[in-house]
Design a protein around this nucleic acid. Sequence first.
DNA 1: CTGAAAGCGCTTACAG
DNA 2: CTGAAAGCGCTTACAG
Lengths: 349, 349
Amino acid sequence: MPDTTRRADRANGSRYGNRPTMKDVAARAGVGLKTVSRVVNGEPGVTPDTERRVREAIEALGFRRNDSARVLRKGRTASIGLVLEDLADPFYGPLSRAVEEVARAHGALLINGSSAEDPEREQELALALCARRVDGLVVIPAGDDHRYLEPEIRAGVATVFVDRPAGGIDADVVLSDNFGGARDGVAHLIAHGHRRIGFIGDMPRIHTAAERLRGYRAAMEDAGIPVAEGWMSLGATDPERVRRATEEMLAGPDPVTAVFTGNNRVTVTVIRVLAEYDRPVALVGFDDFELADLLQPGVTVVAQDAAALGRTAADRLFQRLDGAPGTPERLELPTRLITRGSGELPPAH
Amino acid sequence: MPDTTRRADRANGSRYGNRPTMKDVAARAGVGLKTVSRVVNGEPGVTPDTERRVREAIEALGFRRNDSARVLRKGRTASIGLVLEDLADPFYGPLSRAVEEVARAHGALLINGSSAEDPEREQELALALCARRVDGLVVIPAGDDHRYLEPEIRAGVATVFVDRPAGGIDADVVLSDNFGGARDGVAHLIAHGHRRIGFIGDMPRIHTAAERLRGYRAAMEDAGIPVAEGWMSLGATDPERVRRATEEMLAGPDPVTAVFTGNNRVTVTVIRVLAEYDRPVALVGFDDFELADLLQPGVTVVAQDAAALGRTAADRLFQRLDGAPGTPERLELPTRLITRGSGELPPAH
DNA sequence: CTGAAAGCGCTTACAG
DNA sequence: CTGAAAGCGCTTACAG
């Protein structure tokens, strides 16, 4: 007997198991389809007695409305997509959570995925979300060409970029003040007497990396310090490369006395390397991280507010979904310098 | 003219903007609906010439298949739901990412949300995902009664629990060896000469917290050490409570000489408190965390593999979706003691 | 207060 | 090789 059921399942394509539908409920309650719909959706105009019968049938059958079908008819899916770089990166945790909370407040679910910093995967994921007809999209770009989203946006998919701007299209974007934050962080090192300052950042094609490098250059120029080529290293943030870069800057006759790191992953690796040196090297890192205050010395950072980035982007998205007019905007959030010791070390000659 | 378009949008309920459908493509290409479907899905039996005409129409109209409609007809949504405690918690980042990778390998999207440790919110979220007809569900329970999922599971929603077992229902579950890990960690402290050892953990209603406390008790009992009431503190993991608990254990005539902490959030707070004391207090924490090796002393931990938890759970889920038979299983993953210094400090008398 | 018909955008099952 | 009809499970627009 269970076997027969199984085969029946397969025969109808195992369609959602064997779930009862509104039609089943209507039949059992002896009412029309529309009446069931009214009860399920809390619409008015049903006598208490009818409603009771419908509710009993729902209970008895274990009916749950198929939102997937509802969505098809209504035209809005009450879900938004989030494309980020890596769900496992601690920077994106609070950002995702903030987007989720805003979505929740608007009764929407969140579908998300990681691009793994691969532009092709970003596109694949973003378009899959569009095919699901998410109402809107929050994207942390991996690539720098987003023209593939143009038809989708034109077709009505609200889209907001966060952390990095879109490439090749005009769209709302929420950014941290990467340039200003880096400039302030480097100026802080200069104010503490450093002149030979290294910069270790992410790949230059990533917008945030380029902006932070620009901030570094600006601070140095403002102080009238010429920058040596060997003081700048941009590339992948894997520990091996960052370690090599750090060691090179600390070698030679005129080693750097301070390092500015371009993001949290770089910072962490540089801390490990510096721990192996006897001479103190000053450090300011972009991005705050847990326990930065408990290390010795505490790590001075330029902090950005990941949750605020996510919240601002999601708010903007729902404003657009609610029909907010106007051309795409660029929203820039300030950063904050947090001094904890490592950035206040004097230069070791 | 744009205004007219706008009004038209509203009139039809702003249905996915104004997206072209297969019907539009068919009309433009001068073929039947089914032929468009064949081309879009790469099914055989279309002459090259017909295919070309269809592709041109698709291109010209900017058509993208509505997977939401497809799903309704096919019965499987190619998406799975993940209910976790907090997207922003660093422990769940790698776990989510692992689930995502497995889903991706199976061509499924991931819909996820945070329960915020609130049983009601967990239920609301899990049922919303069921209403969307996700094919399966990975749940990190907040509550301890999951009977509300019984009708869903019976209706065919594959469900796997991770990190904590389900309550009131029989379901697949993937756990760390919380009992064994905690017992080993406490035994490690005992082996280093400690007898007065404190335990600070999460709320006792949370399964992992209870299991880890059980491990603590077992280790103490194995060593023949009677446990004083004041040595155990379970409750919310907010810094204020944990700080108070730590301070109380360190006060009085017979203070603890070592602390075992029940999870990463507790550990981090206890480290902050211990940093304020002159006398050294040994510490072993459940859960590894970034930079644990760079603190002074390095923090000895009982590490669990969050990514492996997620991967194992997702693998199990897709096995079930592929028809794997058998009764629900309990999979337990080992933990690993990582010594870094804090757990090897001798007792200060 | 209630319900039958049409339709959302696809796929399935079938016939030519 | 191609396509018309029916249907997935709901909601919409309308009529009684």
